[in-house]
């Protein structure tokens, strides 16, 4: 438990340090974009948050797969927490994306943009996961149904990610092309630090929530034993 707490503290310190470094790089080092100017700075948090949301959904699906394949007793709760994190980062992706869209395109949302719509579909799909999960009583049936649902959603992740590359007409910028990232130098470094900060933040929040859920479950068992 002590080792686990130390690891959690280490993750929290890493997330805090990287976030501070990312903010310093974004506002004091990274240059203004030639096309979008100052507003392009939203990119440094918006894209890493979106990639983190994809990562969380993928981890949730992977844990669901482990639950179904190996019968890992901890995997169901881990899958649930990862998907919960994915939804939180999904909300942030949609909110920061809308703000960036308003300043760049003059619209809060464009239904014609395939990547936006597909991300919204992915987000709503995993939001509905909680409706399914909490409509079934606690037990193996709930764990199995939730795992199958989480696995279905994994198909949407590459479709959503690749949508912008498959689209013929788009205005949403492409960050990673087939030839590598579409930027270099300070911008690339700032982006990498921001991405690391978001991943560390997600890992920290994941561990905190998982610890809380496990503690809640143990206390419930203890209460039943003492009743």
């Amino acid at each position: 438990m002590s080792l686990r707490n130390n690891r959690l503290a280490a993750w929290a310190a890493l997330a805090l340090g990287l976030s501070a470094a990312a903010l310093a790089l974004i506002f004091f080092v990274a240059p203004n974009d030639a096309d979008q100017g100052f507003s392009q700075r939203i990119f440094y948090f918006h894209v890493p948050i979106a990639l983190t949301a994809y990562g969380c959904f993928f981890v949730g699906a992977w844990k669901a797969f482990r639950h179904l394949w190996k019968g890992d007793p901890t995997a169901d709760l881990e899958s649930y927490v990862a998907i919960h994190q994915g939804v939180i980062f999904g909300v942030l992706t949609l909110a920061t994306g809308s703000i960036w869209a308003k300043i760049s395109w003059g619209h809060w949302w464009l239904w014609s943009e395939k990547q936006l719509t597909l991300f919204l579909v992915l987000f709503l799909f995993y939001s509905a996961y909680f409706m399914l999960r909490f409509s079934v009583d606690d037990g193996p049936q709930r764990a199995n149904l939730s795992a199958v649902y989480a696995l279905f959603g994994v198909v949407l992740i590459p479709i959503s990610f690749l949508a912008i590359r498959l689209a013929q007409n788009y205005i949403h910028p492409v960050v990673f092309t087939r030839h590598g990232p579409a930027f270099h130098g300070t911008i690339l470094w700032t982006f990498c630090v921001s991405l690391a900060a978001m991943l560390a933040l997600a890992a920290t929040l994941y561990r905190i929530e998982l610890t809380g859920k496990r503690l809640d479950s143990r206390l419930r068992e203890l209460r039943e034993l003492l009743a």
Binding site: F38, S39, I42, L92, A95
Partner: peptide, 12 residues
């Protein structure tokens, strides 16, 4: 632009 950037970071 500064207002929108501030709003985005505040939301996070």
């Amino acid at each position: 632009a500064e207002k929108y950037v501030t709003a985005a970071y505040l939301v996070v």
